[in-house]
Amino acid sequence: MKVLFILSIIFFSTCSNAVVKRHDVPAKNYLLAEAPEYLIDMPHEGHGVLISPQWILTVAHTIFYDYSGKKIKVGSKNVEIEKVHIHPGYIEADKTLFKGDAAPLMNFLRSRSDIALVKLSTPVKDLKPIDIYSNSNELGQEITVYGRGATGNGKTGENTETKPLRELNHFKNIVEATDDKWLSFKFDEAQKALPLEGIHGSGDSGGPSVIFDNGTPYLVGLSSWQIWQGDLALFKGGLYGTTAYQVRVSNYRDWIVSVVGS
């Protein structure tokens, strides 16, 4: 697991995503002074989403070991983790996939179910969880994505040296494709881009993407990975034209209900 964690620092900026911004929009426009109540920071890196008073939904690759008994900050309180449930379709990547041509790793990431549930020892009563989007019409819709990881811009890509700053940013994008596991979107430039167009970068795995309906947010995705072609040694996250992938939460509704209950 330690080897995979080190590799994740090197490469999983494709899988551990934060906010990379437009180069022609002031960076301050992406900053947020206050986090949504449902955004939870995971113990070491990445985020989770409070979906009920006792349950956090995240991507499985943010779980570096058995977190049972570990404290996690939820709102203003440190709450003990009772148990972690990792989806049976999640498989850890073999370290050989992180070398050479990216295609085998990309196919591997696309094939697995990168999702997990974290049960808290006691329910949280002072925060409002987010509801999961109940429809399957995400295609073409605008999403808002949150993260505290590395920042940068689409021309130069992400700057991993900014990750320790833990600044809260958000961006917007349009869901361009959906399948049985993933929502995806491209980081567009200039006239094709939204005013706060962006993509996730290193340090924000599990961060929520939401659709607002009459001002109410609904959870549709969890930041997971970015596509890359060619030699992995040349990987640079967050460049214009990059396609990002998020766990399609609606696809996992039955599994979530089977673990959490109704």
Rank of each mutant, 00 (worst) to 15 (best):
C15R: 01
R22K: 11
E82P: 00
N107T: 13
P26I: 06
I10D: 12
R22Q: 07
M106C: 05
I51R: 03
V74Q: 03
V20A: 12
I10N: 09
V49G: 03
Q54P: 01
F64E: 11
D94N: 13
G89E: 12
N29S: 13
D126E: 15
L50I: 08
K77I: 05
V124F: 00
P36N: 07
V49L: 14
E34L: 09
I115S: 04
F98W: 11
H23W: 12
K128H: 08
P36D: 04
F64R: 09
S76R: 15
A102H: 00
D126H: 13
I40R: 05
K128M: 14
S111A: 15
K70D: 13
S76H: 10
E37Y: 01
S52P: 02
L39I: 09
K77R: 12
F11S: 03
L31K: 12
E45K: 14
G46F: 08
M106A: 03
K99H: 07
K70P: 01
E92V: 09
H61I: 06
D94T: 09
V84Q: 06
K77Y: 00
E45R: 14
I132H: 02
D114H: 07
V84D: 03
G48M: 05
G46Y: 05
K73T: 11
D94H: 10
S16F: 04
V20L: 10
A102K: 00
S113F: 02
P123L: 06
D94F: 01
H85S: 11
Y90Q: 10
H47F: 06
K71H: 05
S121I: 14
E37G: 10
A93V: 11
V79S: 03
T122Y: 07
S52D: 12
A102L: 02
V49C: 13
H47G: 01
K28V: 12
H23R: 08
K21D: 01
